[in-house]
Amino acid sequence: MAVRTKKLINHPQDIQREMLAGFAAAYPDVIRLTEDGLIVRRVEKEVGKVGLVIGNGTGHEPAMIGLIGPGWLDVNVPGEIFAAPGPDRIVRGIQVADRGAGVLLLVSHHEGDRINAEIAMDLCAAQGIAPVEMVLLYDDISSAPKGSEADRRGTSGLFFVWKMLGAYAEMGASLSECRRMAEKIRDQTRTLAVALTPGSSPINREVMFELPDDEMEIGMGVHGEMGQGRLPFTSADATVAVMLPQILADLPFRSGDEVLVMLNDSGSMTQMELFIAYRHIALLLSGAGIQVYKCWVGRYATTQEMAGMAISLCKVDEQLKSLWDAPAIGANVRWVQP
């Protein structure tokens, strides 16, 4: 124990502030860092459109700082490393995002994020900051059984919500339409992750969990929370073959369905490994009669240098497909239809 990993930082207490400053310096054309530490769009959303706000602990980059911009979200309230921001800063984010059509507060389901968001909602109500609605989002099938979906935690599959909701708000959808759309995308999304080697805390540079060389953990959460259990470490195809059927059975996804697929690298997988895994995912989906509309393969939401990946599927209809295809220009996560 107590083997310290190498992190190129200055002082642990400055990590969050210095990262945000560097991010703002790198992408001044897309985003701006406010004096109170919020990441906001450089060019504000048009008046009369719903504002989209998310607060979260940092350490998961490019999530969520990378997802602020046209076609994405409007304001990110970054907390400290792996800790949700406090309620006053969330309220500030809501005020900044308001363009006269109300604000939707998006909450990836973790205890700290939920509680701080609820307190922020109470403060908005007490201070007459209006109108604002909140939606709790979750996707990780390993964190609670089917039937208890609302107890599940939020992980990388929520990118489907961020992307399509960003497009929907940009089209001029109302606040209640936006909330219902967020719920619809959430309810059609499922994720399962696997971890091979742990990431380390940038604060104390110690590994976040122990995982023997000959084991892997199915269902690992985005802060190193343990999942459903450990299996012997095995091949790419065998790992996909364990994970994908669980995801398909959960919604369930059926033959004839069209889906978006996201294969997220949790921090230090190689592109080589991801594509080998994706190859088998595509093969198994095809065998199940499920058609892939589009896929994203890459590093979108991370747990420091944790080696592992999360497979996410979202069942789509024509409306969701058009929302998916709309352009989204974040600082370092950009999507334009090829």
Partner: peptide
């Protein structure tokens, strides 16, 4: 609540 953040700050707050 505001200096700590996270669940612990919100609950003790």
């Amino acid at each position: 609540m505001n200096r700590m953040g996270g669940a612990a700050g919100a609950l003790l707050g």
